[in-house]
Each structure stands twice: as C-alpha cells, then as structure tokens.
Amino acid sequence: PPSSSTVVPPSLPPYFIKGSIIQLADGELKRVEDLKTEDFIQSAEISSELKIDSSTVERIEGSHTSPNFAVVQFSVGEHRAQVSVEVLVEYPFFVFGQGWSSCCPDRTTQLLELPCTKLSVGDVCISLTLKNLR
C-alpha cells in the first residue's frame, strides 16, 4: 500500500521573495522569478545526490489547524507514493512547464511579489528525491 507522510515546512523561507538570488548546480546565478523548468532539470542532472521527481497534485484542502494553512496531497514518482504536505497557503511550488504556483497566488504575490498562478489538482510539481537510496 502507498505510504503517506505529512511534512510541515517552517514559515515562508526568504528565498521565495522576488529578486532572491538562486545558484544553479553549474554555478549560474538567477533570480527566483526567472527560474525555468530546465534550470531545475539541468541542475538535478549535474547533482550526484539529487534527482527530480514529478509530484502530481491529487487533492488540496484546508488545514484543520489554521486557515492560513492548506494540505496538499501529492502522488510522487513512478511508485505514485502518497505524500501529504501541510503548507502556508502562499507557499509556492514549481509546476513543470508553468512556473511558481500556490494555493493562494494573490497572497503569494502580495507577500513575496513572486509572480504566481493557482495550484490546481492535476498540476505536476517538481520535487526531489535521493538518486541512490542505498
């Protein structure tokens, strides 16, 4: 049966603020709002430890703990493992071929000035796993 886990990230990290400088695996520097799908894919290819996994959004619901949080359920990788993540509604995820998306893009844009679209069921987000588990 698929496993399930819940991860609660800390409060909104500073690197999502528009203008933040991000270093790719090849050393290139880019602003967070300028990142493209290829940047993540190429960085993961260079990385010896990390690989990109696709995480499909299966469900989005409000959190029981706070109206500021949402629970996003993903189906991760080829094994379609079920992973639930509790995040702030403005927490951005990177959607393949689309860019930054969050449960509440208006708040993301308001708080971070990061251009953002609405995260929806069926969206395929970029996530990471370890290349070699053993």
């Binding site: 690197y15 270093q23 940047d39 993540f40 990109i52 993903f74 992973v83 996530s127 990471l128």
Partner: peptide, 25 residues
C-alpha cells in the same frame, strides 16, 4: 560611506520540496 552588504545566495535545491516517500521494495 556605506559598506556594500553581501547578497545572500541560495542553492537551487532549497526551493524544491524534498519528498522522499518510503520505498516499498
């Protein structure tokens, strides 16, 4: 005279959620 402040640089992988589901095999 204002000293230039160093701009923080964040690694690319910090922006991506690390989702490591338990492997069944």
């Amino acid at each position: 005279n204002v000293e230039p402040r160093s701009v923080p640089v964040f690694p690319w992988h910090s922006l991506v959620p690390f989702l490591a589901p338990t492997q069944s095999d």
